[in-house]
Design a protein around this nucleic acid. Sequence first.
DNA 1: TGATGTTGCTTATACGCATTAGCACGTGCT
DNA 2: AGCACGTGCTAATGCGTATAAGCAACATCA
Lengths: 351, 351
Amino acid sequence: MTQRGEVGQLTQRQVAERAGVSQATVSLVLNGKADASTRIPKETRARVEKILRETGYVANPAARRLAGLGNKIVGVFTYEPAFPSEGQDFYAPLLNGIESSAEELGCDLLLFTSAPVVDGTRRLLHENNRLRLADGCLLLGREMNRDELHRLVETGFPVVAVGRRDVPGVPYVGIDYAGGTSELVSAACELGHRSFVYLHVDSQGESVTDRRAGLLDELDRRGMARPRMHPMSAADPVHDWALVKASKATVLVVESHEHAVAVTAIARAEGVRIPEDLSVLVLSDAARQAGPLDFTRLSPPRREVAAAAARLLARRLDPDDEIDSGDLQSMLDCPAIPGTTLAAPRGGIVA
Amino acid sequence: MTQRGEVGQLTQRQVAERAGVSQATVSLVLNGKADASTRIPKETRARVEKILRETGYVANPAARRLAGLGNKIVGVFTYEPAFPSEGQDFYAPLLNGIESSAEELGCDLLLFTSAPVVDGTRRLLHENNRLRLADGCLLLGREMNRDELHRLVETGFPVVAVGRRDVPGVPYVGIDYAGGTSELVSAACELGHRSFVYLHVDSQGESVTDRRAGLLDELDRRGMARPRMHPMSAADPVHDWALVKASKATVLVVESHEHAVAVTAIARAEGVRIPEDLSVLVLSDAARQAGPLDFTRLSPPRREVAAAAARLLARRLDPDDEIDSGDLQSMLDCPAIPGTTLAAPRGGIVA
DNA sequence: TGATGTTGCTTATACGCATTAGCACGTGCT
DNA sequence: AGCACGTGCTAATGCGTATAAGCAACATCA
């Protein structure tokens, strides 16, 4: 059980012996210190550096960390496994963004894959978690355990969430889904639509509630009726299409692109023309392959939001950087793509 | 520049004070030690455990590591960035496999994204690398710097490569591309084919040379002529198709599925029937979306090879586990999928 | 009544590094 | 000569943990 770490590796002391100096001197040379109290003349410095190069010495990061330095390690916690192909469309662009930021910043990424799964999501604060090996941590996931998030923030450990979070005090970079959704809905209203139906994801995640809020608030502002709302059932698009048809709405709003493809395929098979008979708005972007329809849709900057979160975390880790409290929570614009599935209403759904 | 690590966090000493015992006692309780020389009676143990639970104490992993313990951290080094969408089809299944093994083993993953890029690939052994924070490291990539790999193995740091490696002493789990390719080629020969053309990846990576060897060796064994070989140019499938046509071969062997889709699309547009006019063998599997053709192809167990490598690394980290030297290097079978693009030759390519 | 265990801890040390305080040895000035 | 000051280092300490070594109190046995 007891795992042995480390085989014997070169230490500063050994380097120091070879160079005929003390360990402290090696450390000073390594870190380029040159205070009034710690002066190393060029020649000594050169001698030490020569040995360092010859031996290929690399500092033990655990010791550095213990001695109170940062490690340039960014923790990444995903509330679900990140790489299974189901979750991949969700996490891949985020990890892509984080990776490129990390590369720029010279950081390594520590993925907390050991977190045990309780009630369907991973738990970060388990015993012997390796959280503190990282300088800070990014949090990814559709839904997060609010309790745990709260406790984590309270410990003072530097954390940044990818995506807006409702828990007070949690720094984040989010995407303005509400604004983007409003815009799309607004465009439909301007074209004369008055009747909406909403196929939504069944989740309490903030991004989901933001999209719903964008839809409902925009309709409220215009004094229009609330839309029919149905949770999507990935397993049964036929059923979903039946509900849409029954609603007699002229605009179908679908939260997931994938589901939009499935439902519209059924609709078109029944002879429904899009957008002539039914307009379709999609609140996410195509993952990879576009279907036959170029949906009028949102194009959330998912890669960018993760990259921005990583940069924000880096700023939090830099003690010289005083962050405006307003910058701790920010939202990126969520642009809409015109596409071809929105048109003025004509006759409603032809059954 | 100097990053501060750690905000003040609960230590064993503080726990010890609260429980009215020494720090050592806390450590002993935590690690469930009960040697002849270190006995803790139930009551004391209970008292300490109570405080531990109340405070939610978590050990500082850096200190544990420094004290000579393993961390349950598996390093993951990719020779190219792992998440950009281009590389994604390559790395995603591997990371998937590693993640699920890590989850089973209770390990976290440390991704060395900070490695600087030199000559097109990342360099692992740069100064201040965080390698030694991990207990061991998995190496992923089509091609690896042999020098660096050699040096790394020499340091005694536990490493396992995903994919066969030619560098002596490197433990790995690979895929038997040579065997799989032989099998496919053999099947074509049995059907009467005598003339092959090979569109191959332009790389010195071991998996690439293994596939080539599988093809050439099988033809040699049968005393058949060497095939025409052309490096694929992703940018110009038209040119590649021209070369294939010119070769008058009856079997086209293509290394990458993607490229096979592109080239056969052009061929079919010209009226070439597959497999009636031309048989096609593909040496990799469809990434996600299958094209119109169900290729006769290899189906390399890429997820599984990575998971197996992670498990092998875990065994190497377990001091109680004596690994057979034969188990340090192993190959997984690479099954073939029949598909529908291999048939007996009739008239060669109709130009 | 010592001698010898046994129990239940604590003390001390090491791990590798960063950092502060300070020492020995000049040199310049009065 | 005596003192201040600068130079070039080193010694010592602490970070939080694991663990070997040891110590005091008590029990057991001859």
